[in-house]
Amino acid sequence: MNPRTLVFPFIFCFLTLWTLFPGSARGDDVLSQIALANGYYAKSQYQEAANIYQGLIDRGKKNGYLFYNLGNTYLRLGKTGPSILNYIRAKRFLPRDESLDTNLSYAILKTQDQLEPPSTSGLSSLFFWVNNFTKTEQLVFFEIINLFFWVVLGIWIVRRTGFWNLTRKTMMAFLFISVLSVGVKIVLESESTTGVILAKTIEVKSASGAENVTLFELHEGSVVSIIDHKNDWYQIELNDGKRGWAQKEFIGI
């Protein structure tokens, strides 16, 4: 079969895939719910607003601004734990949002322990830009670079000039960096799980089990790293290296 006959179906399929956006989650109903919740918030009816925001999230709606608004609402309700938890969730989607950073810092200052989110690891220090972009942004960047790379490679096949050779190599370097960035982001997200204490006070034990020695206490809103889990217990670590076990039901992740 003539290869020319194969090209057009592929282009058609490709374009069709891209024109399928946006996804099924789009809906006026969701937006009207958010508008309603925003209105409640403006009228200081924070509990009603929180119920709507939380309901949307429970139904699978994941959006950075939704988490941010819910964080604000919980903070207005005096619930620093859920507030900080939702700010941290929002940060996954809005890594460069200054309002979010400001409110998160403010919320942490309101806690008794004032524990900051876990500091960056060696890998994220090396790939310093990774923390400033979401995984989706990095995937999109990779897709664009991937497309450009193959286009340039195609042009280079028919026009083997110095310029296109240089462009090809440059795109290859970008492609390599973007693949590496996505990989590092996936590794970092899978390795580090941040948890927030939701109860007023919890006892952190030396091992998983209520009968063990209480090492220290944590209070609502403390941010910890989850490093292991066993049955109903999480092993947690603080920024200063302290470790212990806490019950899962008191920690939001």
């Binding site: 956006f21 946006p22 996804g23 989650a25 789009r26 969701v30 937006l31 958010i34 508008a35 925003n38 918030y41 994941k62 959006n63 601004y65 939704l66 941010y68 608004n69 604000n72 609402t73 903070l75 989607f93 309002s99 400001t102 409110n103 403010y106 919320a107 995984k135 989706t136 995937l139 999109v140």
Partner: peptide, 19 residues
């Protein structure tokens, strides 16, 4: 005080490419 909530509704739509 904290900074206000986000009210631009178009930002609440699913991202063009969600995960």
């Amino acid at each position: 005080d904290i900074l206000p909530i986000h009210t631009k509704l178009s930002d609440f739509e699913n991202n063009l490419l969600s995960e």
